[in-house]
Design a protein around this nucleic acid. Sequence first.
DNA 1: GCCAACGTTGGC
DNA 2: GCCAACGTTGGC
Length: 160
Amino acid sequence: MATATATAKPAARHWLMKSEPDCFSIDHLKKKKTSGWDGVRNYQARNFMREMAVGDKVLFYHSSITPPGVAGLAEVCALAHPDPTQFDPESEYYDPKATPSVPRWFMVDVKYISTFPALLPLERLHQIPELSDMVLLQRSRLSVQPASKLHYDLIVSLAK
DNA sequence: GCCAACGTTGGC
DNA sequence: GCCAACGTTGGC
């Protein structure tokens, strides 16, 4: 017999993605509605994007600004595909070792979901014992990282 | 602007 | 495959 699991959509996974708001903020995403997450040039971050599925939930994090923190929510709306900036010699993300037939860098597309009423600062996250094992708090440099549903839900509730 | 953490590069 | 040198990220 056909089981429910055979047709059920797999549960959405959760992620945290960082952007420098001077470069691309959640307001930019709100205005554009959807955007390719280009410019990732770290293999681990790239590999996480290749694991993403449409509908996965994303915490949109503002980095390299005072204060840093989670700014809102987004959702994956297109699977990983080659990041066009790697082929563009004019782009700061140009990679001469990448070719269209053998692309090296990939990006997903994300769509805007919501902006938190106020930025949830990193400092606040540090104060929550349940979040102490978040990748963000352990490996602060990784720009695309998985988050547990528990952490995601907790952050959403803290942001209200 | 400093610097810790960590990723990448390249010589060997 | 090791590892020193170097570059980058990102909080402070």
